[in-house]
Design a protein around this nucleic acid. Structure first.
Lengths: 193, 193
DNA sequence: AGCATTTCTTGCCATAGGACAAGTCCACTT
DNA sequence: AAGTGGACTTGTCCTATGGCAAGAAATGCT
């Protein structure tokens, strides 16, 4: 008997029934990642994606000065995917990496397509998810302009504590668009005020 | 005889044939917008989208200080859409507005769905387009962090001259994430250097 | 345990950009 | 033609953040 509870939280959709979750669970393979391990390297093409169960991952790239920029975090319950690379079969711009040890469930592109075609609720979930991603990305790029670095950090603490708990500060700093020195001062300021 | 040349450039995809373009053209209605006219107001739900033929549109919203922020521009050849509002049938966060007089082609949600279901090449085009949008948005949010305001402005001049030609500078300033005063100084600096 | 490496903090100074206010220029109205 | 309002520029001052370098703390390795 397969335990589908994890997949029920990840692929949550009212149309999905017990049988569907069984099929979904069977399409995934559990993997364990050691700290710092890369799931996908820039320049390579994605062939699968991942549902994160435990730990924390990030995506990052290098800016025009050669500085590492963390572009996104993937917490337990999140989907880690480079959709542009996976669906268009082109090389990824970004690297994807486990930060501490990570437990995740991998699904290959073909198996994913199979589920999309055979499971209606899964298709619906996929559409919702993609739309939501676009929405989140949009919100974030608006916030980059309209919210101070301090407030963005406070918001991160409030809304995604896993990141603050498990990620080195220098990754968080680049995610917030500031240097690690600046983040250090912001933290001092917060602790004082 | 319908002239489909405009739609051939907008909905460009190798699978689309002459007949498809005829169907696409017939699903659109030409509209003329006067300067400043709103296509969609924040709080209302989108029921259609637009292909811009002439002029320039923008989307904007108000930040937490009540400042108007221009979030995107739509040039001739671009699709103007609030996909989250249109597909999820929820109110838009943003306003969409013609800047000078604009000529555009409107397509209702239902007619769009109809095309998606009946025309394979259109479906393919749609997928490519959505992926590309996500990519562009991602690139832009990375640039907001990694490129200076001056360089972002220079890049805008180089890659999207229509915007610089037709948009008031204060809109451009907020699009770049700076004040109109700062943009004014940047322009002075560029003119001098 | 002891050393090396990385991570984080801190100090000093430089700079980009913001806030506010005044001034100029231009288009549109009447 | 005069008046009005919007768009853009400019001045002054201020603040947030960056760059660099040194120190402190934590982590990992042998």
């Amino acid at each position: 008997m397969t335990d589908t509870s994890f997949f029920q939280t990840i692929y949550h959709h009212p149309l999905l029934k017990d049988n569907d979750y069984k099929a979904i669970a069977e399409a995934h393979t559990k993997i364990d990642l050691t700290p710092g391990m890369l799931l996908l390297e820039a320049g390579k093409t994605a062939r699968e994606f991942y549902a994160i169960e435990q730990g924390l991952c990030r995506s990052f790239l290098y800016d025009y000065n050669g500085n590492e920029i963390t572009t996104e975090y993937y917490c337990p319950g999140d989907i880690l995917i480079e959709s542009f690379s996976l669906f268009q079969r082109i090389p990824s711009n970004e690297n994807f990496q486990a930060i501490p040890a990570v437990t995740a469930w991998k699904i290959a592109y073909d198996d994913f397509q199979q589920l999309l075609q055979t499971v209606e609720g899964f298709r619906e979930w996929g559409r919702n998810w993609a739309t939501h991603q676009l929405f989140v990305l949009k919100q974030r790029s608006i916030q980059a302009f309209t919210v101070s670095a301090t407030d963005r950090y406070l918001q991160l603490i409030a809304t995604r504590p896993t990141i603050v708990a498990l990620s080195p500060l220098k990754y968080i700093a680049s995610y917030l668009g500031i240097t690690d020195s600046s983040l250090s001062r912001i933290r001092k300021e917060i602790a004082a005020g």
